[in-house]
């Protein structure tokens, strides 16, 4: 009997096709990042000088020092050349290499993003399952209504409301930051939840955890809504399949039929959506980090815009773009793990 086989060549072709699609995307990102920020009035030197102002000759001199006096297209050419050599440049403001800054701030964003996606998965998948199993019940309508609200809620508004209620009024959670100023934690992994465990100071860990709660909820709300709705619709479709009837005909418990036989199939489209959430998380992180003064990539990028720190913005966007694209590629490649029909057999 012929088995459907996928050769290593097919696999390589698939990866190469995907990677070749990445090239135009990268060119697009560099173009957008480079020209859009330059459309914004003002330049880094003006912003650094601030309200005191700067005399014209000095301004021109500094512009020349930074290479900002050349025509845009030439500047872009230099920029692309440096990027191709792996050099993302230095921040005009801090004189620190863009890559170094990125590396030191990235773990904070990743920690927040991971917590947010875990929060979204832990609530979203069970809510979607129950809504599908009890379709058209009050629970179903309730969950779908709330998730639509969550999806439509602007992050900055949602964040401010939560801070107002839980931090200011009730005082359960800290208002902003990653950890209380009382604690100094030596960065090992960059993830405070892990690093505080090394300090063996319970207070530090709890403080880090407490600071994470509100940002996690704010950043996780949109993915939560998307995942809950996707799980529900995938589940509804799967529950009508013939193999679910077979599973019931075997005398399996309801829990096993839904939680194993149906869920395994329903998760296939949900995983795609989770992969796509990486982009949503980075976008959301920009607002969330700004609201909660979270020292991560998002806040760094926003500040770079305000300071017209061209290299930081260009380099940061390029790195974020690379990460989003890699994660999506990895998600595509790992489909086979949950969907045997597209598994690459040998």
């Amino acid at each position: 009997m012929p088995l459907r086989l996928f050769s290593i060549q097919d696999m390589l072709r698939f990866i190469l096709t995907r990677v070749s699609l990445v090239i135009p995307t990268f060119i697009g990102i560099t173009l957008l990042a480079f020209f859009l920020i330059r459309l914004v009035p003002g330049d880094p030197i003006e912003t650094m000088a601030g309200e005191r102002g700067i005399d014209v000759a000095r301004h021109e001199q500094l512009k020349k020092d930074f290479g900002l006096d050349k025509p845009l297209i030439v500047q872009y050419g230099y920029y692309v050349e440096r990027v191709l050599h792996g050099d993302l440049g230095k921040s005009i403001v801090t004189r620190e290499s863009v890559l170094t800054e990125f590396q030191s701030l990235f773990p904070a964003t990743v920690e927040l993003a991971i917590c947010a996606i875990i929060f979204a998965l832990l609530l979203g998948i069970p809510a979607g399952i129950v809504a599908a199993v009890r379709r058209n019940s009050i629970f179903d309508h309730g969950v779908m209504g709330i998730s639509l609200t969550g999806y439509s809620m602007p992050i900055f508004w949602w964040g401010l409301i939560l801070i107002l209620v839980f931090s200011v009024q009730i005082g359960w959670t800290p208002v902003s930051g990653r950890i209380d100023v009382l604690y100094y934690v030596e960065p090992v992994t960059g993830f405070l939840l892990i690093d505080t465990l090394f300090t063996e100071d319970e207070g530090a860990f709890l403080s880090a955890l407490g600071h994470l709660i509100l940002p996690t909820i704010v950043l996780g709300t949109q993915p939560l809504a998307t995942i809950a709705r996707m799980t529900r619709s995938a589940m509804l479709e799967v529950l009508g399949e013939d193999y679910i009837r077979t599973a019931k005909a075997k005398g399996l418990s309801r829990f096993r039929v839904v939680g194993l036989h149906a869920l395994r199939n329903a998760l296939i489209p949900v995983v795609t959506v989770i992969g796509l959430q990486v982009g949503v998380l980075f976008t959301g992180a920009i607002l969330t980090e700004t609201i909660f003064s979270w020292p991560g990539i998002g806040k760094w990028l926003i500040e770079a815009i305000f300071r017209r720190d061209y290299p930081v913005l260009q380099g940061g966007l390029l790195l974020v773009g690379a990460i989003v694209m890699s994660v999506n590629l990895i998600v595509d490649l790992t489909y086979g793990l949950i969907n045997p029909r597209i598994r690459h057999n040998r």
Partner: peptide, 8 residues
């Protein structure tokens, strides 16, 4: 073919 679960 559809009566058997494709994932197992």
């Amino acid at each position: 073919t559809t009566s058997l679960n494709p994932c197992f």
